[in-house]
Design a protein around this nucleic acid. Sequence first.
DNA 1: TATGAATGAGTCTTCATTCAT
DNA 2: TATGAATGAAGACTCATTCAT
Lengths: 198, 198, 198, 198
Amino acid sequence: MLAAARRVFERDGFLDARITDISAEANMAHGTFYKYFDSKEQVFMEVIERSQEELFAERPSRQSAAETPFERILETNRAYYEAYRRNRALNKVLEAVATFDDTLRQQRVVIRRRYVDRTEKAIRRWQAEGLASPHLDPHYAASSLGSMVDRTIYVWLVLGEDHDPDVGLDTLSRLWVRALGLPEPDPVPPRRKRRRST
Amino acid sequence: MLAAARRVFERDGFLDARITDISAEANMAHGTFYKYFDSKEQVFMEVIERSQEELFAERPSRQSAAETPFERILETNRAYYEAYRRNRALNKVLEAVATFDDTLRQQRVVIRRRYVDRTEKAIRRWQAEGLASPHLDPHYAASSLGSMVDRTIYVWLVLGEDHDPDVGLDTLSRLWVRALGLPEPDPVPPRRKRRRST
Amino acid sequence: MLAAARRVFERDGFLDARITDISAEANMAHGTFYKYFDSKEQVFMEVIERSQEELFAERPSRQSAAETPFERILETNRAYYEAYRRNRALNKVLEAVATFDDTLRQQRVVIRRRYVDRTEKAIRRWQAEGLASPHLDPHYAASSLGSMVDRTIYVWLVLGEDHDPDVGLDTLSRLWVRALGLPEPDPVPPRRKRRRST
Amino acid sequence: MLAAARRVFERDGFLDARITDISAEANMAHGTFYKYFDSKEQVFMEVIERSQEELFAERPSRQSAAETPFERILETNRAYYEAYRRNRALNKVLEAVATFDDTLRQQRVVIRRRYVDRTEKAIRRWQAEGLASPHLDPHYAASSLGSMVDRTIYVWLVLGEDHDPDVGLDTLSRLWVRALGLPEPDPVPPRRKRRRST
DNA sequence: TATGAATGAGTCTTCATTCAT
DNA sequence: TATGAATGAAGACTCATTCAT
């Protein structure tokens, strides 16, 4: 039933999803829906939760070989990109619902704050170590760089902007470290930039 | 009537706005609505259009004293911030509708592309002049930096994240130029960083 | 519409009345119902109110020739009986709804209290004048006699107990005055007691 | 199960009682309900029947010391009051259901008739003995006095009218005998009339 | 005998849209 | 051009009842 709901949300979006469709997708009578959920809002929340859980569950051993900050950033961005891509259809709906549902918006603000706080601390550390520019406000820098990654990937995967993930993520990560003043790696070997459609 | 529609959209959002409310706000019978518009979608489009026109209309003479790239970037970002802020309520709705209305989404993608193309050309120019790092892909850089500005301001003004616009915009613009390798200005004089709520 | 609602309530009772039926009875689409009323509860209240208003409106000049307490009581009881009878079908529904709707129950308790208070005062007056037995508690007497009249007429008109209203009301009123000790009139001339069905 | 049903009816009333709740209250699956009963109506009837049986079962030896009609009436009324009070919650529901369920209404009409008939005979006897006024119609008198007792106790116990049962029942019984002309006992010794809430 | 998942009839309610005046 | 009563499609939700296990 949860799986059916997810399929319908992915297919029709939140607003156009009807209880009847979800039930039908699960080969159930619509009354059955109410045995498991109270409303469309609730089932959506559960679908989202379940999706998050799966995401965390599959997160592999973190024993990465990343040595430099750039490598770690690139790796993080790529992981985010991949996770987002695997749930692209659902994420699209999620972004939409978050624009008009206060509960969900609040929830996302909290998640965002967590990410920003963590990044802010890292920036302070780098500044203390003389790795990052001391002229940048760590909080605003963390917030804006977070937005950059977040939105860039949204534009690629939800708005469907043409892109080659390798080049795109490399550039994105370079911008990230350069903006802070962290060391940038050697240029990537020249390659034919072939953008990839979604 | 158009003004009434705008007020209602700003107050209630798109989904919760009812034709009846718009008519009432305009002191009209709701039947009259259909003399002027065909549907809620259409009137929303017109409200948006009108808003854009006003935005362009008020854009003052561009005789700016900006000399350096940083100054120009900062000025542009500030102008964008101010314009966005003046129409915050409507922009919030606009972002929401764009997540589920294809026409609107398409339209925004086009606007975005224009901005990215312009920035991309500027980056190429800077690279040619030896001002910007040659190792960055101009297209992806333009796209990601655009997303950064765009989303940061959305987070501040729509999601309501605490911020001091002076510090925030300064940091945002610094990140922008630093990411490309453009010259960064001297550090801002120390100031009490007092974040401003929206 | 109100008239249609009344007909449907009278015909089907409150629980079995459907919005659709009311609308159909008024030759309207069911959506139209909501232009005038918010819910079944509300329309019922309005039907009841309207009925009460009509009742008060038709109350004729009170210039009665009643001289003795008995005559006044008899006249009052008869008037109540007639009014109740004219709205019998609606009253039946009203009694039913009052058993499960708190608003309505409260309202009826208030009306009852008003009646009891008035009667209680009359009894005190009669006691002071030496007309009524001094051994009776005026409050409880008023309450119980009120219940007697009330319920007796309900039993006749709603439960449909066979009765001849002339004999019945005469007896009822005799019991009323006798219970208090007020003077009773001469016996009614012998008549064939033919009970009347409702 | 029957006990559970009774508790649920008392708590929620008939209309708001759900089969599921009854089953849950009995720690049973709701499917099991249908092993024992066919419908909500039926289980309610059984609850009522059971309640009646208990009432009769507990009726103690009638060896009362009542000598005068007044004493017998008072004793009867008090017994009725007490029985009604012990089952107040259920009686409240019973009165409600009787307003819209024909079977139940019919049943109650029958019970009422039995009571009225018995009283009617008693009145005739008293009239023959010269104890009661010959000017009263025995049938209507019995009916109305029955209604008086019935309704008064309902008003006290179900509608929750403040009352002191001693004073109230004394007054009620006095009215009863006075209305018929039966001898009334000496006045009760003066007492503080303290009304008792239900 | 007990279970509880599944059913689906039955109603309410909203609101964009039409149209006679 | 303005009105607002009327429309009816669309969907949510409840809960008594069935039935395979």
